[in-house]
């Protein structure tokens, strides 16, 4: 049984000046429980819009989504979200941030403490429990965001460029962490990224989207995520299929970008 079903979703924005943006057109994705999906696409192809719809922040103009058989109508703790940055609560300590979800559902204190302590150890922030979040580095803050999301034990985790604001080294460590957490927790994860390498590494499945209207362009099934769970990610990148796949997808996106540029030049 497929857990998350995105069926024929469309989204159009009516602009105040009378124009219309078709951000998504007939997007369908079926995700099985525990699958790791990465979504890649040129800027403006509707990735964030899609994720916001799945999270329940936006109602689509067409189509239905179901999770475990019931329809998605709004935000819910069953679908956790990790943002690029700025979504931690700076008025709370690291511990309070991670314990936010459990507090909202009035989880007993002892149980909450156990969950929070465990998750902070998992993401390697055991020594920073009482720190204010603004005292942490960007990478540490994203680890807090991951732990906060996991503390709620959601069925699906949605990540919108969670590592986009990090430097290359921190980013690589965080990619390993995401893989490790995925394997350990068995969560269904949708991850949006701008980086082709990241999409290859962090996707059992990879969807490339095309813009105007935003739609699914191509889909891949990849072995790299599974390999990366135990191996060094740099080793994974040396896999004979990795380079060719990267080049293929890069030139695909490059072509789309060029098409967009050409179109805007024509219309100008």
């Amino acid at each position: 049984m497929s857990e998350l079903s995105i069926d024929n979703i469309s989204m159009r924005f009516d602009l105040p000046n009378g124009g219309v943006v078709q951000a998504l057109k007939n997007v369908s994705i079926d995700l099985k429980s525990g699958e790791l999906l990465s979504i890649l696409g040129p800027s403006g192809c509707g990735k964030t819009t899609l994720l916001n719809i799945v999270a329940g922040f936006l109602a689509p103009t067409g189509g239905v989504m179901t999770l475990n058989g019931h329809q998605i109508k709004g935000p819910d703790a069953e679908r956790g979200m990790v943002f690029q940055q700025g979504a931690l609560f700076e008025w709370m300590s690291v511990r309070e941030n991670v314990g936010f979800g459990p507090s909202m559902k009035k989880m007993p204190k002892a149980e909450k403490k156990q969950t929070v302590d465990h998750l902070l150890n998992v993401v390697g922030l055991g020594d920073f429990k009482e720190k204010a979040v603004y005292e942490l580095s960007g990478g540490m803050q994203q680890r807090v965001a991951l732990a906060r999301c996991l503390a709620n034990d959601p069925d699906v985790i949605l990540m919108d460029e969670p590592l986009g604001a990090l430097d290359a080294l921190t980013r690589e460590k965080m990619q390993s962490l995401v893989l490790k957490l995925w394997k350990e927790t068995g969560k269904t994860i949708i991850l949006i990224t701008h980086s082709v390498e990241e999409a290859l590494l962090l996707g059992e499945r990879l969807i490339v989207m095309a813009p105007r209207p935003g739609r699914i362009h191509k889909e891949y099934n990849l072995p790299f995520a599974e390999l990366g769970v135990d191996a060094d990610l740099r080793e994974v990148k040396k896999h004979p299929d990795f380079g060719p796949k990267r080049e293929e997808i890069l030139s695909m996106i490059w072509d789309m970008e060029e098409e967009i540029m050409g179109r805007t030049e024509e219309s100008a």
């Binding site: 329940g56 703790a77 956790g80 979200m81 943002f83 700025g86 979504a87 909202m104 906060r148 999301c149």
Partner: peptide, 22 residues
Amino acid sequence: NISKVHAAYSLGASKWQIMRYV
């Protein structure tokens, strides 16, 4: 920041809890 509000909703907060804690 709207992503804080979104994050809180996704963590299961009610409207009242959003008010109080965010």
